[in-house]
Computed example of a mutant assay.
Amino acid sequence: MKKTLTGECISEFIGSWMLIFIGCGSVASLILSGASISQWEISIIWGLAVTMAIYITGAVSGTHINPAVTIALMVYRDFPKKKVIPYIVSQIAGCFLGAATVYLLFKNLFLSFEASNNIVRSSIDGLATARIFSTYPHSEISIFTALLTEIIITMFLVMVILAVGEAKNNNKPLANLAPVMIGLTIAIIGASFGVLTGFAMNPARDFGPKLFAMIAGWGTNALGQNMYFWVPIVGPIVGGLLAGFVFDKGIKRYMEAEEITQEAK
Rank of each mutant, 00 (worst) to 15 (best):
L184N: 02
T70R: 12
L162C: 02
K107L: 14
A222L: 11
F110S: 07
I31C: 07
W40C: 05
T145I: 08
W17R: 00
G240S: 09
S16I: 04
I71F: 02
I37T: 10
I215W: 04
G194V: 02
S29N: 15
W46R: 07
G183A: 04
A191V: 03
F21N: 04
E166S: 11
E256I: 15
N221A: 14
I56C: 13
Y254K: 02
L162N: 01
M18P: 06
L162D: 01
A28E: 08
G194N: 09
I260N: 12
I151H: 00
K107G: 00
T6Y: 14
S122G: 13
W218C: 03
I14S: 07
Q91K: 05
V75W: 08
G244Q: 10
I31K: 10
N176K: 09
V69T: 07
F207R: 01
I189M: 11
C9E: 05
L223F: 14
D206C: 06
A200G: 06
A243Y: 05
I151S: 04
S61W: 10
V238F: 07
F229G: 02
L177I: 04
E256H: 12
Q39W: 11
V102Y: 02
Q225H: 14
L174M: 13
I124M: 12
S61G: 11
L241K: 02
I182P: 05
I45S: 08
F79E: 07
A163N: 10
Q225L: 15
V238S: 03
V180K: 01
I56N: 09
L73Y: 14
A163T: 03
M201S: 01
Y103R: 15
T101F: 12
S43T: 05
E258A: 12
L32Q: 09
F110M: 13
L19N: 05
I85N: 08
A72E: 02
A216I: 08
I92D: 03
K252W: 05
E263C: 04
I65T: 04
N117A: 00
S90C: 06
G98L: 04
E140W: 03
D125A: 14
I215H: 02
G217A: 10
G94E: 08
F144K: 00
C24T: 05
V164K: 08
Y136I: 03
K107I: 11
M227C: 13
G183K: 06
G7E: 08
Q39C: 00
S61M: 13
N117C: 06
A146D: 09
I151L: 04
T57I: 11
I92W: 01
S192L: 10
A68W: 01
G94K: 07
T197F: 08
P80Y: 06
K168M: 00
V234N: 12
I124S: 15
C24L: 05
S43D: 01
L109W: 10
T6E: 12
G183S: 02
E263N: 11
I188K: 00
T135R: 03
N202D: 00
L184V: 09
F193R: 06
T185I: 01
